[in-house]
Design a protein around this nucleic acid. Structure first.
Lengths: 221, 221, 221, 221
DNA sequence: GATGAATGAGCTTTCATTCAT
DNA sequence: CATGAATGAAAGCTCATTCAT
């Protein structure tokens, strides 16, 4: 059901198709890069690390990618597609709104877990490369829009009030993204290093739900 | 009110005291580093960039710091002190809990704004250097503990229920940290590039407040 | 009239004969190399450029040539043959000496135009490869010998005086070679980019004629 | 009388001045580059060859030059200046026109001999790099203009006739340039490897003089 | 202290050549 | 014969760090 990890066979720069052997090598490199991005981080991974890990010659890397950025670009593409697909597959018609939100959080959490290497790499790259900063903003934007839309819908239904849907969506999205990064990649907080999936999902869902659905507000604005 | 930008005079590696001239040079280098970490990012800033920006000779850098990490270490120290100090200065006795939370968010936001270079640098460094990942975890841990304590207090007061104070505190802290990073350093989201201080603070406060204070929960756990 | 562009079928390295298909491939590669040597220069042309231009696989190149030098070697051979043949075809018995010289220049110019790729490649290669420097010296030597012979004949006939036939032949030959290179390959001088064939030929012929036939010389030697 | 070989102290990229030590290193690198460009050719000289020859560390090269092209650019500049200066120093008022022309050829020859490395390098580079092709065209253009002006002056004085001053100047200039290259750098023709200065200069002068001054022409145009 | 040149390890990228399919 | 992936030796260039002045 999930898209092939490593992405479509994809074409080399000149538009020709890859042979079976080529497809295998490209996948091996991509898989090696994933492993290393996850374990050592994107910036700390050298091309030569990737080829060694993939058991290929250094030069072979350049048969498939122009540089390290292109590897990440490819991964980011897959990551984006994956998240989008998973989000559209959600059943938004369930009667219990909390269930819907929890499902969404579950999808987000498990996508990030499945693609933790991609998450790590793009998050890191977004902090030192303007190009990937933009890319990451695009990728995460879908989720922001969805949350903002939810907030606005509640407003119109008179179920809750929130004067800043976009800002709130940004805050909640930031929470989801960085919370996933912290627990899935960085290894938790100072006093604790892991979190059961259940708890993580429930925690995010609770924050989202309460932030979105609160009615009677003693909030002076 | 703010602590001296550039930090204490501090001693050079060998323990000798700095001359007046030395104090000036050291401060100039730190200030230059701040500016560059903010504008180009920590990873993209070379030692030679710092000395050029500070209008000092390349070699002079090593009179005051052993390497770039030490510069950041120093900044992180100042940052941590600043945040801690500001948080303890908070008046937690105000009757309106939302006011207390908003004050806390205001302190956080303005500290991050004042120290955006430090925030940028340590956030970025935390993503490629295990040492700074640990350091950053320590720095942010104070805020997490405070939030968790608040949640637990509400629980005991019967004002709200939350079965995972630590996880929730981590989520809310992640929100605050990354939200500040996004808007103060990265330049906002895909569809918007800036946020008035008022709105930013209000938004964070609302999420915190609602997440902490919600009572009647239809949350099946 | 011109020799088959691409040269004789020639044998592959191992001495076996080429199949019809092989002949076609070899010719395609040679033709592609010509086009590229002309448009991008010899040094800037990679083996992979040649095979791509020839619409052949990279490996196929090595079926026919050991390396790029061998391609040029082959071309140089053809070029030399062509120039020699054309020169021997000249009618040296015409009564007007200027006509003879002009014919020679015309042959030279049109040979260089027809083989501009070869001229470009060997001229360029002669400047970075001792082997081709030697090769190019051989190729151009025929023309030098002919000019020197002409000068000596005039001397003996008492029609002109020139104390250094070889040096003068070298100078005049250098003129012809580089003039052709400049206008046929490099694209002219700073203030002008093209020259009608007529003018080019006439110009070279005039210099040759006057240099060879001057009688009453006020040249103090 | 000749400008300092290696050129002015010149500034590093950032506009700061070089120290005495820096001036020495830069000169050593330039001198080493000259020697190698001459002996092995421009294309065959690696940066590491230059630093080894100059007895400097590899990285030091980049303290003074951004790349090999910049070294040549600098040399070309010096070369151009030198030739221009020497040409303007010529005494054009001598009564004997042949003497004037011979002086010009002597200047050209000795400039090329003194700067044979530069001549070699720029000639070679002009054949594989569009930038240097343009550069070389500019450098040689001065001489072409001078020759063309001479031809036109003779025409107006009724002393000779030449319908294509520019083309002829190009031909004569080509002769001078390549003749110098052949004898000063390439090592002569197939049957002879060196030429006394006297003979070289006399030979070039004779071709120029005769081509320019011929009167009674049996040249049918 | 200040200076900036010197150093060289380290990393990226290119490309001729080989060779399994 | 054709194919194009695999290989790894070269270069090029960068930059943290040292050190003589």
């Amino acid at each position: 059901m999930t898209s092939e990890r490593g992405g479509a066979p994809a074409l080399p720069a000149d538009g020709t198709l890859l042979t079976a052997r080529g497809v295998r090598s490209r996948a091996a490199l991509l898989a090696a890069a994933r492993r290393l991005f996850q374990s050592q981080g994107y910036a700390n991974t050298k091309i030569s690390d990737i080829t060694r890990e993939a058991d290929r010659a250094l030069g072979s890397f350049y048969t498939y990618f122009a540089n390290k950025q292109e590897v990440l670009e490819q991964m980011a593409e897959d990551f984006k597609t994956e998240i989008e697909t998973r989000l559209t597959e959600l059943d938004l018609t369930r009667p219990e709104p909390f269930e819907v939100i929890r499902d969404m959080c579950a999808v987000h959490w498990s996508s990030c877990r499945a693609h933790s290497a991609e998450l790590a790499a793009i998050f890191q790259a977004s902090m030192q490369d303007e190009h990937f900063a933009r890319r990451w903003r695009e990728i995460r934007f879908d989720a922001r829009k969805k949350i903002a839309a939810g907030i606005r819908a509640l407003e119109q239904a008179g179920l809750a009030h929130n004067p800043e849907p976009e800002a709130t969506a940004s805050a909640l999205g930031s929470m989801m993204d960085y919370f996933c990064y912290v627990w899935l990649i960085e290894g938790g907080e100072a006093d604790r290093v892991s979190l059961p999936d259940e708890v993580a999902i429930e925690t995010m869902a609770r924050v989202l739900y309460r932030s979105m659905f609160a009615e009677a507000e003693p909030l002076g604005e």
